[in-house]
């Protein structure tokens, strides 16, 4: 464990806590894409298949349980909670996220470390996570006023993978070399997708105005 990876995990955890706070405190999920939340639940379920078989550390197991349970809880909340579900922008959240699932599956079947269920699922989860934010970014462009908690949620979600890239650089220089090109490329794409969001988030912070993504 190095400081970059720990910072990345804490930033990721914080983004989930901010989203849970927004839904719990405002009893509303307006501005949140259910499709992105479903994709994240799928990412965690396919990446943490080893949850019950390989014990790496208490930290690792606890964090996996937190990410799986929080993503499923958010999906349940947005689909079934009597109050929250009514605030879901169903007609705005129209990204065809099945194409992202299909594309990631094809990529995982073509490009993986080893052709085993575990490795193909892992590669699938890495590719899917890289594009899972797209429905949310599209929804942000459509919903004119982005509330603060939603903006902070997306910001921390984007920042966490940037910390992971620093972690991979650190590990490259300090540990034996592994073939890490799958997370490398996917991580750069994932962080790159946030580039324009980070820019407009910075402008809204600098000019102290509400965050607005151009359509």
């Amino acid at each position: 464990m190095n400081v970059f990876r720990f910072a990345g995990d804490m930033t990721h955890l914080f983004s989930v806590l901010v989203l849970l706070l927004k839904i719990y405190a405002t009893k509303s999920c307006s501005g949140i894409s259910l499709k992105t939340q479903e994709l994240y639940a799928l990412v965690f379920l396919t990446r943490y298949l080893d949850l019950l078989t390989d014990f790496i550390s208490l930290y690792n197991t606890v964090m996996k349980l937190v990410f799986i349970s929080s993503s499923l809880a958010i999906v349940w909340c947005m689909r079934a909670h009597p109050v929250v579900r009514r605030t879901y922008d169903k007609d705005q959240d129209t990204f065809r996220h099945y194409t992202l699932v299909a594309g990631s599956l094809v990529l995982a079947l073509l490009f993986h470390d080893r052709f085993t269920i575990r490795e193909v699922c892992w590669a699938f989860s890495i590719y899917l996570e890289a594009v899972a934010i797209l429905p949310q970014l599209v929804l942000l462009q459509r919903s004119r006023n982005v509330d603060n908690l939603t903006g902070q949620y997306v910001f921390f979600l984007g920042a966490y993978r940037a910390f992971y890239i620093l972690n991979w650089i650190y590990r490259y220089f300090t540990e034996q070399h592994f073939s890490r090109w799958i997370p490398w490329i996917a991580g750069l794409v994932q962080t790159g997708l946030y580039a324009d969001f980070f820019y407009y988030y910075y402008l809204s912070w600098k000019n102290n105005v509400k965050l607005q993504l151009p359509a």
Binding site: R5, D9, H12, D50, D54, I56, N60, M63, K64, F67, D113, R114, E119, W122, Y164, N167, Q176, H177, F178, S179, R180, I182, P183
Partner: peptide, 10 residues
């Protein structure tokens, strides 16, 4: 055979 990516990260 290059080692596969370790899965010790989240």
């Amino acid at each position: 055979e290059v080692e596969a990516t370790p899965h010790d990260e989240l």
